[in-house]
Simulated assay, not measured.
Amino acid sequence: MKHLIEKRNDSLARIEEILALVEAEQRPMTEEEMAEIEALKTEVEEINKQKEVVESTRNLKPVKEENKKDEVKEIMERNLEVRAQEERAFIEALQEGNTRSLGSANKAIIPNTIADRIIEKVVELSDVISHAEVVRYTGDYTIVCESEGTQGADYFNGNFAELVSEVTTEVLGGHTIGGVEKISNDTINSTTIDVVEYVVNKIARKIAEKVEKEILDGTEGKIKGLSKVTNKIEVTGEVTPETLIDMQNQMRGAKPSECMFVVNRATFGALRKAKDATGRFYMENSMGIDGELVSSMFGSRVVVSDVTTRPVAYIAKGAVTVKFAQELNIQILKELYATQNCIGVLGSISVDACANSNDKVVIATTAPLMRARK
Rank of each mutant, 00 (worst) to 15 (best):
K61G: 05
E36F: 07
N67C: 03
I37G: 07
R88N: 06
I114N: 01
N67F: 11
V44N: 05
K121Q: 03
T42A: 06
K51L: 13
A93W: 04
S56P: 04
E66D: 06
G103W: 13
N112F: 13
N98W: 06
I118W: 03
I75R: 13
N59H: 11
N59K: 15
N98A: 00
E33R: 04
E81R: 10
M34S: 15
P111N: 00
I110H: 00
L60P: 09
K121F: 02
M76Q: 11
K69I: 15
K69E: 15
E87S: 05
Q50R: 04
L102H: 00
E96Q: 06
E124M: 13
P62T: 07
N112T: 13
E55Q: 12
V82S: 03
E74P: 00
S104E: 03
V72C: 00
E52D: 11
D70F: 14
S56Q: 13
T99R: 03
E36D: 07
E81T: 15
A108T: 02
N67R: 06
E36Q: 02
I110S: 00
N98L: 03
A93I: 00
R88Q: 06
L102F: 02
G97N: 01
S104P: 09
K41S: 14
Q95T: 08
T99K: 03
E46P: 00
K68Y: 07
A39W: 10
G97V: 01
E71A: 11
E46L: 10
E87C: 06
K121H: 01
G97D: 04
E71L: 12
N106Y: 14
R100C: 04
S56L: 15
E31F: 14
K41L: 15
L60W: 10
L125P: 08
K61T: 11
R83C: 05
T42R: 08
V123L: 03
L94A: 01
M34A: 15
S101D: 06
E31L: 14
E31A: 12
Q95P: 01
S56K: 12
N48E: 08
R78D: 10
Q85A: 06
E52N: 09
E124F: 14
S130Y: 10
S126R: 01
T99D: 00
S56C: 07
E86F: 05
K49I: 13
E92N: 04
A84V: 05
Q50K: 02
K61V: 09
E92I: 01
N67P: 00
T113I: 09
E81K: 11
R117N: 08
L102C: 01
M34V: 15
M76Y: 08
E120T: 06
R78L: 14
I118H: 01
N59A: 13
R88L: 14
E52P: 03
E36H: 03
K69V: 15
N79I: 09
E120P: 00
M76W: 05
E87K: 12
S130K: 05
R88I: 15
K121C: 02
I75F: 14
K49A: 13
N106Q: 14
E55L: 11
K73H: 07
M34C: 12
S101Q: 04
I118R: 03
A115V: 09
A105V: 11
K68G: 07
T42D: 10
A35D: 08
E31C: 07
I129G: 04
R78E: 15
E45V: 11
E36T: 04
E38T: 13
T99P: 09
K64F: 12
E38D: 06
A39I: 15
I75Y: 13
A105T: 10
E65T: 14
L102Y: 01
Q85N: 05
T42H: 08
S130N: 07
